[in-house]
Design a protein around this nucleic acid. Sequence first.
DNA 1: GCCAATTCAGGACATATGTCCTTTCCCAAT
DNA 2: ATTGGGAAAGGACATATGTCCTGAATTGGC
Lengths: 242, 242
Amino acid sequence: MKEIQDREQLKHYLRAFQLESVFHEPLRPHLSLYGFEPGDLICTQGQAPEYLYVLVHGKLKIYTTSSEGKTLVLSFKTPLEVIGDVEYVRGTPILNTVEAVTPVCMIGVQYRWLHNYGKDHAPLLQFLLDIITQKFYVKSNSLSFNLMYPVEVRLASYLLSVTSDESESRLEEQGSAVSLSDAANFIGTSYRHLNRVIRQFCIQGLVERRKGVIVVKDRNGLSSLAGHNIYEHNQGKGETRL
Amino acid sequence: MKEIQDREQLKHYLRAFQLESVFHEPLRPHLSLYGFEPGDLICTQGQAPEYLYVLVHGKLKIYTTSSEGKTLVLSFKTPLEVIGDVEYVRGTPILNTVEAVTPVCMIGVQYRWLHNYGKDHAPLLQFLLDIITQKFYVKSNSLSFNLMYPVEVRLASYLLSVTSDESESRLEEQGSAVSLSDAANFIGTSYRHLNRVIRQFCIQGLVERRKGVIVVKDRNGLSSLAGHNIYEHNQGKGETRL
DNA sequence: GCCAATTCAGGACATATGTCCTTTCCCAAT
DNA sequence: ATTGGGAAAGGACATATGTCCTGAATTGGC
């Protein structure tokens, strides 16, 4: 992590994401921009958190590791997203490990300033509510989905959610570098089993393998397999009530 | 559902749960008390919500039903808990079905009043944040746990979390009426498989069956099976930062 | 271009879990 | 008491998924 000393850039992001009222005057001096390189850990499961981060550029991977060493990828995040919000509100240790997948830029604020100047600031509270309810919503879907459907269906849904709508879209686009084993950990299965299901999809003509890359051949087929159940992504802010 | 016309009782609950500042003067006239009988549905997945409810007495079951008819029990809730909070903030249809397990009493407020008089009211926002982050936390644990461990471990954890600390505690206490098939749906497995695992636990001397009731015989044994992973319950408000 | 080291795909087998069906047992209505 | 219905437990089998290992493919260094 390195701090980026560029108040102009910071202002730019605040404007671009309409965060000016969220981080009002008293908080401004305590905001900083931080850069992370792919593979950098932003925070680690179990540690005491210190900063609230707002992701404004790049892609993050959120995962948890069991005591036996198994890894479960919980989500991939793109802007606008917040890291450390739940921990801030609850005062608990960091829940999941967060790692930069691409070069990442985040706005960071120390909890103490957030608390001093923000704890009664309605726009900030509303912003946090908005973000956290969205997270809750996504996680809730994810929980039901993972518990109710077999890997086959989850993979179909996953492929639909990470590839774009072109006639032939492949996994691993725009340098997003989602490896197959990450995908397996995300779906909550083993790498081995993922391969098995992919092979089956190949046979059914739904996807194709091309040197380590999966190419979606038949979105409709995948859709009918997945049913209406799609891994929900950050679909923007939607209509919030606040 | 029937409305309970008793302002004194309402005041009593507000005091008991320290909700007086959360629901401040302008909101008070729009609060009502509602009673539900076991089996009553408080709200149904997919509907348009209208009320925010605060559970002040009784026990609720939250579940979701897939289009194929499979049911997944997401949680059981006891006071203090809020229903409809995520939907209120996000303006979305009801996510999960909520059913009374015991006689239930809840404080209800229509969204429109909440919005009119509460959308900038910091104590209310803080309250919602507190509740929702707690929900998020529990759900997050639940997701990882369910995806990472086999039914055996989940059941051990579940038994520990629903039975009290006595030397011999049985499932199905204090009229809580958690049926085995509810338990199966909660753990995310089939009734058949749950039985299989219970049988195995019996053989290992961990639990005993007595006419449809499960009696925990060896908490330590269950603990070592479950590892440190326990289904998190509402462990009170904890230390919140707000 | 060649080799060692690493990643990747898949075979073989074990285990976990689901589905369907049968048996038993309990209770309520007659 | 008799009987029908339905919960509760478990048998038999099919399927889904995990683990371990092997051989092919790929890559980076020389």
